[in-house]
Design a protein around this nucleic acid. Sequence first.
RNA 1: GCGCCCGUAGCUCAGUCGGAUAGAGCGUCGGACUUCGAAUCCGCAGGCCGCAGGUUCGAAUCCUGCCGGGCGUACCA
Length: 593
Amino acid sequence: MEADAADACRPQWTPLPPLRMEPRSLQIKDFPLMSLVRNRLIQLLQEAIESMLEGIGQQPSDPIHIELDIPKIAEHGHYATNVAMSLTRHLKRNPREIAGLILRSLQDREGLLHKVEIAGPGFINFFINSGSWQAIVAEILKAPRVYGRQDLGRNRRVQVEFVSANPTGPLHIGHGRGAATGDVVANVLQACGYSVQREYYINDAGNQMDTLGRSLYYRYQQLLGRQVEFPENHYRGEYMVDLAREFRELQGDRYGNRPLEEVLDHFTRFAADRILEGIREDLSAFGVCFDAWFSERSLHEAGAIEKTIEELKSKGHVYEQDGATWFRSTAFGDEKDRVVVRANGMSTYFAADLAYHRDKFERGFDTLVDIWGADHHGYVERMLAGVQALGRDRSDLKIILVQLVNLLRGGEPVAMSTRAGEFVTLKEVLDEVGRDAARFLFLTRRSDSPLDFDLEVAKMQSNDNPVYYVQYAHARLCSVFEVARERGVHWDQAAGESLAHLDRLELPQELELMRLLGEYPHVLANCARCLEAHFIPYYLHELVSLFHSYYNQNRILGDDPPLTQARLSLAAAIREVLRNALEILGVSAPERM
RNA sequence: GCGCCCGUAGCUCAGUCGGAUAGAGCGUCGGACUUCGAAUCCGCAGGCCGCAGGUUCGAAUCCUGCCGGGCGUACCA
């Protein structure tokens, strides 16, 4: 069982090679694999603006942020920027005049640009040379596995903590969404040059653990035929009965006559361990692995909570009132101070959380990312207050709230009540719809937006299901190469890498496809900046949609050998980007389907 | 009551440090397989971006108020 879980945990695709770079000496020009055209253009603009400011005797004030938009209208160019307009205030000149000054200083030595113009209120529109787009294909073919990787993170250490479901029951579909989100955010951060650790926090302390142990104990008693009443607000799910059965098989009937107090610990441990094992298995099946599993109990055992409260006390952030110990979170913007030690001497869950986050920082992480269910949003402010009281910056902790999942079947809501123990587990969903569809659907929504998850749609193998739309494109591309081989057409990959024949790619759709391929690194960078995954599915949809359209109108394998070579190179580049992006999503890229 | 999030096409949703004429899927309707995969493509229709003000060259995006929905408001975990 243990070995199976570990195997399932191993990715079935080839893992990405580790990022090996010297973190210190990095310049933009060292990263040709970032958005090739986009980043080069931004660089040219930066230089132009600096020299323009110098020319008119202005200080290059705050770092100038250059935003490059893709205009909605083709006549406005491939890229457009509004820097001239955003500089009006500082330079006290009108935007079109500034745009003119910038263009005068712009030095396009390598011939990136075909045409530049000033338009509207002061936009600068750029038209890119076809050759620049074609170079993107060559770059992708040279290093497809690392395409999109970049060094935004400069190796800064980030920890992503996610799922962290209480070990009191199996994971349900909502946890699945959190798992997919956390996993992909971590993948993205890794791809963007952060050093990432994935951690699961196990709430294995507190009242709920006793409740868990008692729940098992009572179910066990019932199995032995005792008339015991199962208490309200205990864990009534069917899984608890299964667990009792399993307990009885392994441990026999000898606990039947033992009083609860004597054996509670034993029952609790058994239940928690077994449930946690199940959680691990479910996550493995979902393709989610953690680097570390952190036990709340270990904090208690190490006295970390007391130490944390001591530290807060020494910094003057803690006071006594009504017999309890309070953390003055209002000093950092929380609406109300929070109890850390109750009047009965027990510390609160929040106190453990403070200790936990203190521990994370002590382990050397520069930034912490917490992924929480949106029902915990009321805890965000106090946690941020805690981080600040511990001497860190508020921005060192990023809390991502993942909204709840509404489970539907054929448009009808599926009743889910945790209290009655009737909920749809992640495992059931995976068994029914499959891992690829589940992951993809979880990720096609902004995390802060509630998600309708329809089981019927999810398992539908048709155009209703976006995941197959994307995978189909990949399979189709593979099939093209298969057919080429059958016909004895040899694709000269080396030629593609060296740009040979690529100048034959000049159809508007081809240029647009190449432009999109070039945007991929920028999509990843956006995901890393916003800590959001959903841009990737949307990007994939756009890319694939354009490809399908192109494919239906043009033949890749034709009777013009150089053109065929060029199109095969383009097809290969698209396939590589699809594979690359799907891998980040944890979704397979099938060669056949 | 207070706090957070959300109101964009019939439905589900993108639009993320304010940009030019508002985007996609699904659904409706009509077309395209003798040709590299029709799980695909092409076309038509569909909008006071919840409402009202404000900020400015410019607002779906920022601010204020209201309306509607979700969640949270413990010396629970």
